[in-house]
Design a protein around this nucleic acid. Structure first.
Lengths: 152, 152
DNA sequence: CTTCATGCAAATAATTTGCAGTAAG
DNA sequence: CTTACTGCAAATTATTTGCATGAAG
């Protein structure tokens, strides 16, 4: 069978506990910033160093295990590489959710120049998630700064 | 008529020389990082401070004059807010070019959840621009690190 | 005049590097 | 055994803040 360990080994990366727990964490939580990753892992691995997190994320990105997602205005986040999908970032609660996407249709909606090669596509929507959008409607006249409603 | 100065004033921003030259620069060069902006402006305004560039970019973004574009793997870049468009980032030469895009088609290609509100969409393709793609083909067996072919 | 913007210096945050010790294959 | 990985400290790089001066409206 194809364990995470085997996958790592097969592309020349050693399966260290730090790496395995990092991958495991990303499997559970979809999108995390460097700091969030560090904060999650630290309690169970007190000796973990932040530079190891940096090292591993960059090693894993190079090998294609992990994808770095840049969101304008926020910190970079990292996710496990999976099938292509879009992201919806909620400006109110900070949640990021994955959206199924028909990549061919996205590509055909853009006027790509003849001869360009596309290796990667990022489609990110920013706005309000359904939960926050509804809350916003409820107290529509109130311009107060809104509290968080989901995870960061 | 509606000069840049008037536009700034009409939303409560003073039209300082620093701001005007920043806007002017972004009009010429489409997408620039903070450092590139600073390096461009500094020679003609030796007293310009980097924190003024930060301040202005953030003031101008808040008022919607400027858009911050996050590109995974690179530094953030800034551009003047214009009609919606996609970006093609060339991994080889670093150039960024604007692509016309049919936003409705992009949105309909994604499975957006019921009730979400979309305030902004970012569609970024990464790969090779036509020029670099062609060069790559020409010397296809050569895996050498490629030189730059356009501006950064 | 009054408020906002600039520029400087200093503080803080983010990321990278060098290296000795350690563990994975 | 050998090579790659970890963790630490230090170095860089990036961004933010506080404040006095100066300019725009």
């Amino acid at each position: 069978m194809n364990t995470t360990k085997d996958q790592l080994n097969s592309c020349g990366l050693k399966a260290t506990p730090q790496r395995l727990s990092l991958i495991n964490l990303l499997q559970k939580h979809g999108h995390l910033s460097i700091d969030a990753i560090y904060d999650y892992l630290k309690p169970n691995a007190p000796s973990l160093s932040l530079s190891t997190v940096y090292n591993n994320l960059s090693a894993l990105s190079q090998k294609g295990f992990v994808r770095q997602v840049a969101i304008s205005g926020s910190r970079q986040v990292y996710e496990l590489a999976r099938s292509e999908h879009a992201h919806l970032v909620c400006e109110s609660c900070g949640s990021i959710c994955d959206l199924a996407v028909d990549l061919d249709r996205v590509i055909s909606a853009a006027a790509l120049p003849e001869g360009a090669r596309i290796d990667r596509s990022d489609l990110i929507f920013s706005g309000l998630c359904p939960v926050c959008a509804q809350k916003r409607e409820a107290r529509s006249e109130c311009t107060a700064t809104e509290g968080a409603c989901a995870s960061f």
